[in-house]
Design a binder for these strands. Sequence first.
RNA 1: GCGCCCGUAGCUCAGUUGGAUAGAGCAUCGGCCUUCUAAGCCGAGGGUCGCAGGUUCGACUCCUGCCGGGCGCGCCA
Length: 593
Amino acid sequence: MKSQLQALLEQALASLSASLGRDVPFPAGLQIDAAKDPRHGDFATNLALIAAKGLGQPPRAVAQALLEHLPASSLIAKAEIAGPGFINFFLAPGAFQSVVSRVLEQGADYGCDRSGALGKVMVEFVSANPTGPMHVGHGRGAAYGDSLASILAVTGWTVHREYYINDAGRQVDILTVSVWIRYLQARGVELPFPQRGYPADYIRLTADRLVREHGDALRRDATSLVATLQAEPPAAGDVDDKTKAAIKARQESAMDELIEQSRAALGTDYAVVRSAALADQLAAIRATLDAFGVRFDQWYSEQSLVDSGFARTAIDRLRTAGHVYEQDGATWLRTTTFGDEKDRVLFKADGAATYFANDLAYHVDKLDRGYPVLLDVWGADHHGYIARVRAAIEALTGRKDALRVQLMQFVTLSSGRMGKRSGNFVTLQDLISEAGKDATRFFYLLRSHDQHLEFDIELARSQSNDNPVFYVQYAHARICSVFRQAAERGQSFDIGALAGSLHRLVEPQEKLLLTLMQKYPETLNAAARQYAPHLLAFYLRELADALHSCYNAHKFLVDDAELQSARLGLVAATRQVLANGLGLLGVSAPESM
RNA sequence: GCGCCCGUAGCUCAGUUGGAUAGAGCAUCGGCCUUCUAAGCCGAGGGUCGCAGGUUCGACUCCUGCCGGGCGCGCCA
């Protein structure tokens, strides 16, 4: 509809400049917007305002001249000048009514472009470390990434969803040692738990499994471990930051010793404990994501990059390109060439790869797999990391724009009774169990991702009218109920008779529904372009709002058969758009509530 | 100290990339069920868009400087 208006405006300006005997180029910055206020018509354009300078006339005079040169169109019922020089268009009723037929014909495809014509995009999200359960922060990334991927997939992109498993770093060794010490304790060995280990109960579950499956086979002499643990400084009390940092450093180095001692003691069995620990954590994460309705096309292991040798290969490419150098025994990438504030270490002095080195290789691999656009969803605390990854990609490809990181701002819990002690945090699984998948996902998506989110657990959990997800779902259920009532009366909705009845949709509440449905495709496109699924969530609330208003103002099942046909068509289309939108957000559209 | 994000109604947040009288939910107040689901609807009150300058026909939006909050500045991941 906008494009038709734009075509008319282009003709008007061309005609106007011809009549003036001048060649006026079409100015940049044209806007054709849906009017907020019905008194301003249906659409408004700023063309006269932006063309005024080029024509050397005041905006209102330009607007008047444009109207005189505007070609006649059945689309437009009326056009008038307002304010500083806006042109307001009042569209003919038929221009809106036809959306009903369009929605019902296209069904689940309405507003969608599944052609994949825009190319391939890799969406990497969640990627939570497999060292513990997902918390509410991960949930936000999961809801955002999944919905965004869905939206991109129906707006012309070919989408691949991927989870990067950080299964190669030191934190996995800490996990392994934590499990093994719990195992030893379960077998009656007396030893304290490390300060920097993972103390929570889920560690014990794996330890118990090892006991069941391996009995005493993983038991070793723990003398050296005990010595290390006893020498470890206890948790820092109320001390100054400098002292706290020193204590932490000593605890960390104790942890490193424990890792080495565990490796030495367990030998090849270290891998048994390690893989059991990883498998259990990943299984828990998968189960939670499954309950959350989030699926990935691929789970990509960091360790597999190391094992295959690609982690080194990718860096060799950078070396060949001349961006790698040695200093202080370490290997560095000259990221400052590409705007990073300092160069970054790839291989530490001890020869071990940094997390950055593997992550860099991972991104190169994604490009190699044929994805020119890499959309990464990260926590806001990783923002300092963007420059170096982008620098590495630019060093190899010359492209600055391949990596598009979306940062998720932090989630805080407002419920007030959240314990802060370790092991007592709210997991995503808890949230889903208590509030349900639908309420939880909708809650997350009702905020822009670059905004701090205060998660009101009590509200999400409430099965009351306060919960925003019900408002939208209720609109869908209500429409379903109308059709059930019609069926009980022996009446059916005939799509064939629809087109001839649509002219009966003239009430303001009906007009609003038509306008909103007509806006759905551009809402999807805006959400995709801005990587902003919340635009869709807000749109759906607006659509539900219009439905509820219409429901209360008018009856749909009426004696006048033609009017009933028109109104049933209207709400059937509304139901379709609600279902389409909710589906993209991963929220169900119930037929009754 | 440097960098990134943020500051909008009592609370939680939108604001279509510079447009017309800044919106919604919750909370408060007043109405609406004999009829398609009241998890709903209709109405009212509530604002110096952190502060001060600048850019222009026009600024919540863009620029500069302050004030306030969050996060980040490892040969950690």
